[in-house]
Nucleic acid binder design. Structure first.
Length: 873
DNA sequence: CATATATTTATTTTT
DNA sequence: TAAATATATG
């Protein structure tokens, strides 16, 4: 592969062989100083460089430290150069953290770790290099959910599917799920695909993918899925990467989904060489089932994919590969032929797997030893974070889960304060109580930066915000809506996207009429019709239509102006810095003005955000580079400067720690979230429990739990009962306290929902939850339709045989043909043809100019129209 | 075509 | 409850 390595080879010794022998041992014992202070397990995790390693790192056991030290170790041992290490994390936050820590450990060498990043950013990066092999151009856009949904809506419309009954959002979710499982359109189980849109789910997925190619776009899932396809279809490309990455490190392995797993598997296989038995590479062939429990019934999807990648590997095998060991590598550095150099190290904690709903497969971590035979499993169980009581509570709670690898966290810290549980009358009182306790902590000299409130669902934050505002307590919301998800940012980006890639219909559509230019639905619809018929981008369609009389003069003028503006901006792009260009665009388009005129409360904030956006562009070399990264790595700007309480969801708290952690809302239905229970049943409950475990283990010194008896769910108040998780805490480490919020709960004996108490005790749940679950599932699988299952079934069958909707659209055309068609075709009309036009009626052709016709209409007079709008009669 | 008003409907977690 | 969407009106 020719990808230039942009890294300065920063003081990484290329010579010294890392002889695995006595010399190395001796040196290690003396110890490079970065090894100092590691406990024996950590040290083992760092120093076991060869072969697969799974590090089971419980909360607060120094996971990140192990990862970064391991990288430092690899580098300083000369086992690989920075660009030969693939290091993937799940979140940008984690990637940043690792870069930071590595930087501290190694000086500036972090610049030289080009392959340290999230799955998605690395996937995207590889994809851009080989874009043409997956029918994209290297400047493809990454679509966000909004774009996706808009696109799907159009497809649903084209298929004549009622988007009330089959919402685009739902389809987006389905497709995302398929992509998470590594399924291309042809691989989706047909039964599953047929469940959406009267059997059209699969077809919709396929045409969605087609559209993405035409739009030169990829969605999040594609960043991985298309990568997998790239590797499967181009063994030589795969081999380049297999050769390149001498070491692979994976953070939060418990959160990987099937696609990520497959991707890792492909990369972690040895660069193919003759003589490696297939069974050494393909886990399925080995038949060694190491792990107990539910791992046995492994996901069939995974199985089939493993086999596929096996085939792939086999086809690779014959072509000998030049294993280009770099100068510093000795024989011992490269494992023997019988054991491929799968130097993959995955770090994770099955007890912190909380992204199952996003397709994460806990099985991936549970099955590691099976997938990577000969793997070394190292457990990190010494917790350096929490005090005794907190750790005991967390451990005891998580012990209620089955299907875990099992770790016992221990600490040498003092017992500290007990975990407290506080009940309050309603959620307002809960917020009041927490507010007071925080003020108390503040008075006692606690730093507010060491205080966090972790909620299950983001709607809970509101009450705290309200309360803190009235108290004047500084707080900061972490992980709210992402910066680039704000409307104004996306509008601005849309302008830049259209400049950068004129075929970006979604971006164009977003801003044609923002600010208002008199180009409403009707105009856009017209452009769509033309674009579809002519198989051209909307922008081009607009260019054509402006030349005609299709539009009313007003709209036509506005559209012409817009096109001219874009032409001008595109020209300016060559001579103007991208930041300056952005300012010009925002100004000349009237976008800034639109917000300046807006007198609503948040208009000023939006203008600030726009400034912030322009400022953030400075970090990038050019517009292209900026656009490539924006959707992947832009997240909220934490002004961590001021002292403030942190307010966030449990999910976004993973990986963080605080002295004082407040955990409100421990109520049935909210904390074991009813929805998760309904959808995932037992597995869902266990995931919720892991979430609780994550919450507790964020705390260093104080963990405080709360529940309220009354909570407003959506508009209406409802009575709730304390979470079952509270019952699962060990009483020895917990203290029940009175709410300090004043009135309410203790006094009123009228806390009367005792009739619910017996309904919901653990396990005895067939009456309410079970029934609800069944119902919810039924509704869900039928796409939320209200009728009985049978009715829906018949309906979908009938429309199958009818083949009704195909006519509307004509045959699906493959991209190659589209391109051919859209460039310079000769009109199929001849002079004097009699034609019909929807709006202008009958007439005859008097002039032909490419696809533009001049027609003398009988009623409307002479008009210029586009040929796609008239038909010969 | 744009705006104001009525109605509906959905409410987790995120790369 | 509030946000998002449909409908009526200018």
């Amino acid at each position: 592969m020719t990808e230039p390595s942009k890294l300065p080879h920063h003081g990484v010794p290329e010579h010294q062989p890392a002889a695995g022998g006595i010399a190395a041992r001796a040196r290690a014992a003396a110890g490079p100083q970065y090894l100092n202070g590691l406990n024996p397990e950590q040290r083992e995790a760092v120093e076991t460089l060869d072969g697969p390693v799974l590090v089971l790192a419980g909360a607060g056991t120094g996971k990140t430290r192990v990862l970064t030290t391991r990288i430092a170790h690899i580098l300083s041992q000369g086992r690989a150069r920075p660009h030969e290490i693939l290091s993937v994390t799940f979140t940008n936050k984690a990637a940043r953290e690792m870069k930071l820590r590595l930087g501290q450990m190694l000086g500036q060498a972090v610049e030289g770790m080009p392959w340290l990043g999230t799955f998605h950013s690395i996937g995207g990066r590889i994809l851009r290099i080989h874009a043409e092999l997956v029918q994209l151009k290297s400047n493809f856009t990454v679509l966000d959910v909004d774009d996706q949904v808009r696109l799907l809506k159009q497809l649903l419309q084209a298929e004549n599917i009622d988007d009330k009954r089959w919402p685009a959002r739902m389809l987006a979710g389905l497709i995302d799920g398929w992509k998470n499982r590594g399924l291309a359109p042809s691989q989706v189980p047909s039964g599953e695909a047929a469940m959406f849109g009267n059997g059209k789910g699969g077809k919709l997925y396929a045409s969605y993918q087609e559209r993405l190619k035409i739009l030169n776009a990829a969605d999040f899932g594609d960043l991985l899925l298309e990568n997998i396809r790239l590797f499967r279809e181009n063994p030589d490309v795969l081999r380049q990467y297999q050769n390149r990455f001498k070491f692979i490190l994976v953070d939060e392995y418990q959160d990987t989904n099937v696609a990520q797993y497959l991707w890792l598997r492909l990369l972690s296989q040895a660069p193919s060489r003759p003589g490696v038995p297939l069974s050494a590479i393909i886990p399925g062939a080995a038949g060694t089932t190491v792990i107990p429990g539910r791992i046995e019934d492994a996901n069939p999807d995974v199985q089939s994919h493993i086999e596929e990648s096996g085939d792939n590997e086999e086809s690779l095998r014959d072509s000998g590969s030049a294993l280009s060991a770099h100068p510093g590598m000795t024989e011992t550095a490269t494992p023997t032929a019988s054991s491929p150099p799968k130097n993959i190290c995955c770090v994770g904690d099955d007890d912190q797997s909380i992204y199952g709903w996003r397709g994460a497969e806990v099985d991936n971590i549970l099955r590691f030893e099976h997938d990577f035979p000969g793997a070394k499993v190292i457990r990190l169980e010494r917790n350096y974070r929490s005090t005794g009581h907190i750790l005991a509570a967390a451990s005891h709670l998580i012990a209620h889960n089955e299907g875990r690898l099992g770790k016992t966290l221990r600490t040498e810290d003092v017992d500290g304060e007990k975990v407290t549980v506080t009940g309050s009358w309603d959620s307002e009182e809960e917020a009041r109580a927490i507010g007071e306790e925080i003020e108390e902590l503040q008075r006692a000299g606690e730093n507010l930066n060491d205080v966090a409130i972790l909620v299950r669902a983001s709607f809970q934050m509101r009450e705290f915000e309200d309360r803190f505002v009235t108290l004047g307590l500084p707080y900061r919301v972490i992980g709210g809506p992402r910066f680039y998800e704000r409307a104004e940012i996306r509008d601005a980006l849309a302008y830049l996207r259209v400049i950068n890639s004129p075929a970006d219909d979604l971006a164009f559509e977003r801003i044609v009429n923002v600010p208002k230019r008199g180009l409403g639905d009707a105009t856009v619809q017209l452009l769509h019709d033309h674009a579809r018929k002519r198989r051209m981008p909307l922008f081009e369609a607009a260019r054509a239509v402006v030349e005609t009389d299709e539009l009313k003069p007003k709209a036509r003028g506005a559209l012409r102006d817009l096109i001219l503006q874009f032409d001008r901006w595109r020209a300016q792009r060559e001579v103007t810095a991208h930041t300056e260009l952005a300012e010009i665009v925002l100004d000349e388009s009237g976008y800034t003005e639109m917000w300046q005129k807006d007198r609503s409360a948040d208009a000023a904030g939006r203008l600030d955000n726009l400034k912030e956006l322009v400022r953030s562009m400075e970090e990038f070399e050019n517009l292209q580079g900026f656009l490539e990264h924006i959707s992947l790595v832009m997240d909220r700007d934490g002004d961590a400067s001021d002292e403030a309480v942190s307010l966030m969801t449990l999910h976004s708290a993973k990986g963080l720690e605080f002295d004082n952690v407040f955990l409100p809302g421990w109520e049935e239905g909210l904390f074991p979230s009813q929805r998760t229970l309904d959808e995932q049943g037992r597995a869902g409950l266990e995931e919720e429990r892991r979430l609780a475990h994550v919450g507790l283990t964020r705390a260093r010194r104080r963990a405080k739990l709360y529940f309220a008896t009354n909570r407003r769910i959506h508009g209406t108040w409802s009575t709730t009962i304390p979470s079952r998780f509270l019952d699962e805490l060990p009483s020895a480490n917990v203290e029940i306290t009175e709410s300090k919020g004043g009135s309410g709960w203790g006094g009123a004996g009228g806390y009367g929902p005792s009739r619910f108490d017996n309904v919901e005790s653990f396990g005895s749940s067939y009456t309410t939850p079970g029934w609800q679950r069944a119902q919810a599932n039924r509704n869900r699988s039928q796409g939320g339709r209200s009728g009985q299952a049978r009715g829906g079934f018949e309906e979908s069958q009938s429309s199958f045989s009818g083949g009704f909707s195909r006519n509307k659209r004509g045959p699906i055309v493959i991209e190659g043909e589209l391109v051919a068609k859209s460039t310079g075709t000769v009109s199929e009309f001849s002079l004097a043809d009699r034609v019909f036009h929807q709006k202008f009626g009958y007439g005859h052709v008097v002039k032909i100019d490419g696809n533009k016709l001049t027609i003398a209409f009988e009623k409307a007079g002479e008009k210029k129209v586009v040929d796609s709008f008239v038909e010969r009669v």
